[in-house]
Amino acid sequence: MEIVLMLLKVFAVGGVICAFAQLLINYTKLTAGKILVYFLLAGAVLQAVGLYQYVVDFAGAGATVPISGFGYLLSKGAMEGAKKGLFEALTGGITAAGMGITAAIVFGYLFALFSKSRSKKN
């Protein structure tokens, strides 16, 4: 029961974040790359002022799977690092996000190596 309720929250929050992106696409003609950057920065800023953590506690993956969650992770890492010292303050962000970036590069290269771009019919 608890899991079902949690999944509902995940679905709702994740869905709303994505629907908001769609709203931006419809009204501002922003391209995919720009939307990703803006959402990442929004997540980073919201975490820096201490708000995004509440969304993550409430909705779990609904807040961490969207790219704003990647920004959250970067900010959170930097904030935790800042407690330890200057070096950790500078590297904390990329340490926390290192897994994601590594995965993107490694999987990206591998899958690109073994696949071909297909032309579209519609």
């Binding site: 790359g33 990703l36 950057v37 990442l40 920065l41 980073a44 800023v45 975490q47 820096a48 790219i67 990647f70 920004g71 970067l74 900010s75 890492g77 930097a78 904030m79 690092g81 800042a82 407690k83 010292g85 200057l86 950790e88 303050a89 500078l90 904390g92 962000g93 990329i94 996000a97 970036i101």
Partner: peptide, 18 residues
């Protein structure tokens, strides 16, 4: 750009909190 802005913003946040 996502990685550029992500890393840059995390450094900024880290410095401010430090």
């Amino acid at each position: 750009p996502i990685i550029v802005f992500g890393v840059a913003s995390s450094v900024l946040v880290g410095l401010v909190y430090y």
